[in-house]
Design a protein around this nucleic acid. Structure first.
Lengths: 210, 210
DNA sequence: ATGTTTTTAGACTCATGAGTCTAGTTCTGA
DNA sequence: TCAGAACTAGACTCATGAGTCTAAAAACAT
């Protein structure tokens, strides 16, 4: 009973359907342009039900974003999990993890989430905390932990894991904005693999075992 | 007479004032939430004048974004101009240019422009071309040109200037999103300098003269 | 079985804001 | 000096969409 956000009202299946529909609608049209009627219709639910569950449009947006961020984080963490010391060459492992992280980043919902975040940040500043706490920071930490372990095992020349994560994720995701045209172009896997390979190559030059 | 976007109507000073006010209003509240009345008031102009100049709200957004992108590009290009071979050590020159590019990136208007772009990309896809053609690509090209020159002069180990630019800008701007909390936190210059130094350090490790 | 909660369709209120219109005023150029 | 364009204040129309309400139906709990 510690959390203040507890006590979800109404039936859970409806709630989920509404959240999914809401995220899709908000992502497609933006907060202001999105219509609660459309959300209800897409969720197969009456408009009053939406209001029974979430109270108002703004709360609906927050909850939809939070849920989406949660999903995105889960995928990202699953990718980071695979960064383990197999005993063999590190490069292919890093490339595999890099590719998976890139795939998370380029996911349709992931672009939509970032778009929404950017779009509404100006008048709903608390969205940042929701997403940052639930998603970005957790992934960064998990990745830093893994790099620290590899460094401790003498497999990497990393002294500051946070700085290394900053560089690695910059190298991985930096090139994607332009290449994917800010989410309007679908990257072929081949191209993702190239970016991952280039990023890992640079990373190993910077942080490879000395 | 080649461009289709020619024939600006009305007095120029009013037009500029409207564009500036419009960008501020759109940036602060988003396209849908922004009010044409507010723009007119902020520009010190009657609403009818706004419509006389731009016809409708959507056109106003496009023109405001285009103008802002133009300004941002000018600043970025000015920074890139400073990347010249002084004969001395390259590192301080790169750090200076890096810092200036970071300052452009962290400019209030620059964050606002990216926010708007992300926000409205979903329903106004042609905004991308406006900004990409006017801003992003031109800066990238200019930077690649400079790197190519330095490489040719034997000052850098760059073989593919475009790839080098991709890495350099990733290293420079990648860490900024998180550190500046997506534009909601003002970065102290000290921190910008750190990021620039770290980026240049990595860049020189990757592309320094062999 | 029966009382409580949730859902439903759809009509309804009400605030907001884009875009128009009018009639009078100021610029500007020839 | 004067005609035509650009500007002004402010009232006006009209579409849109958030949020409410109602009375009836399903779903659920015990």
């Amino acid at each position: 009973m510690g959390a203040a956000t507890k006590a979800p009202r109404g039936r859970m299946d409806k709630r989920q359907a509404i959240l999914a529909a809401a995220f899709a609608e908000f992502a497609a049209r933006g907060y202001a342009q999105a219509g609660v009627d459309e959300v209800a219709a897409a969720a197969g639910v009456a408009k009053a039900t939406v209001y029974n569950h979430f109270g108002d449009k703004e709360t609906l947006l927050r909850e939809a974003i939070a849920a989406s961020a949660e999903q995105a984080t889960a995928k990202n963490l699953a990718a980071v999990e695979r960064l383990v010391d197999t005993g063999g060459d590190l490069r292919p492992v890093l490339e595999d993890v890099g590719l998976r992280l890139i795939q998370c980043y380029c996911d349709e919902d992931s672009w939509a989430l970032r778009r929404l975040l950017y779009a509404e940040l100006a008048h709903l500043p608390d969205l940042l905390e929701i997403v940052q706490v639930r998603a970005a920071e957790r992934v960064q930490r998990a990745l830093a932990d893994r790099l620290a372990r590899l460094a401790l095992a003498g497999r990497l020349g990393v002294t500051d894991p946070d700085a290394a994560v900053e560089h690695l994720s910059a190298l991985l995701t930096g090139p994607l904005e332009a290449r994917a045209r800010w989410g309007t172009r679908r990257l072929p896997v081949k191209e993702m693999r190239e970016v991952a390979a280039a990023a890992v190559d640079a990373f190993l030059t910077l942080y490879g075992r000395k």
